[in-house]
């Protein structure tokens, strides 16, 4: 079985600052893969490389067996056109820390937007799916609300529904609960748990160790642009073998 995501020596730098210093990892299909680590460790950057929101400087990154952002002929790499990159992004859903819902559209319109505009789906079909998805995240009664009329937790659940509307094979979560009030975190995690149970492949950058331990199939601890430790969440979180991991976990657990 091909890995859903495979990274080989991925490097990324912003100017002189090296953010990723050689990441190697593999995410299997249907796996919930958690990325944890202190802020500035490069986890979010790595996540953004997967759907080519950031270009990597060295190494290779594959999604579903295909190179991200490039095409290889022989030993030469060719940059993909923007339209080709966009085509690949259809299959990768992304959920942001700050939700990034479209504020000028209602919740329903947010969810319908990509299927109608990108997949050219009929509005009636897109509407039906959007209603189903909003129902799934528990917000069928908020379909007509604008994002500014929703709480943070509700906005994030709409954002998840919006990503699911494109029927992705991979979902990326970039600290989906970090901008939420503690009491609203649970609703969002419930939706993610439900997704995981459905067999969605998920890469989750998170500080929710409870979620990682309970739902995660694999966990990577990153620090300063490198993978320090990886394994099953139970092992890494329960019996960390590296000092840095121990130091970090003692602060967040």
């Amino acid at each position: 079985m091909t890995a859903m995501v495979k990274a080989e020596g991925v490097h990324k730098s912003f100017g002189a600052v090296q953010v990723l210093k050689g990441i190697d990892l593999e995410v299997a299909p249907r796996e919930v893969f958690c990325l944890v680590g202190p802020s500035g460790s490069g986890k979010s950057t790595f996540l953004r490389c997967i759907n080519h929101l950031e270009k990597i400087n060295a190494g290779r990154l594959y999604v579903d067996g295909e190179l991200v952002g490039y095409r290889q002929h022989g030993d030469k790499l060719y940059e993909l056109r923007d339209s080709e990159v966009a085509l690949k992004r259809r299959d990768i859903g992304m959920v942001f820390q700050r939700f990034n819902l479209f504020p000028h559209m209602t919740a329903l319109e947010n969810v319908m937007e990509a299927p109608v505009q990108v997949k050219k789906e009929a509005r009636s079909a897109a509407r039906a799916r959007a209603e189903r998805l909003l129902d799934r995240v528990g917000l069928s009664d908020k379909a007509g609300n604008y994002p500014s009329q929703l709480s943070g937790g509700q906005q994030q659940r709409v954002a998840i529904a919006r990503a699911l509307a494109m029927e992705p094979k991979l979902m990326l979560f970039d600290e989906p609960t970090s901008a939420l009030d503690p009491e609203l975190v649970g609703d969002v995690l419930d939706v993610m748990r439900d997704l995981a149970a459905d067999g969605m492949t998920m890469i989750v950058v998170t500080h929710e160790m409870g979620f990682a331990r309970e739902v995660g199939d694999a966990l990577v601890f990153m620090d300063d642009g490198v993978v320090v430790e990886s394994g099953h969440p139970r092992d890494v979180l329960g019996r960390p073998s590296h000092e840095r991991t121990k130091a970090f976990l003692s602060k967040v657990l």
Binding site: A86, I92, N100, E113, A114, Q117, V118
Partner: peptide, 19 residues
Amino acid sequence: GQTEASQALGMSHGKTLWR
């Protein structure tokens, strides 16, 4: 973040701009 969200959904530059 708006541009990123729209691009992450697979929308083209033109669509992102216009919509």
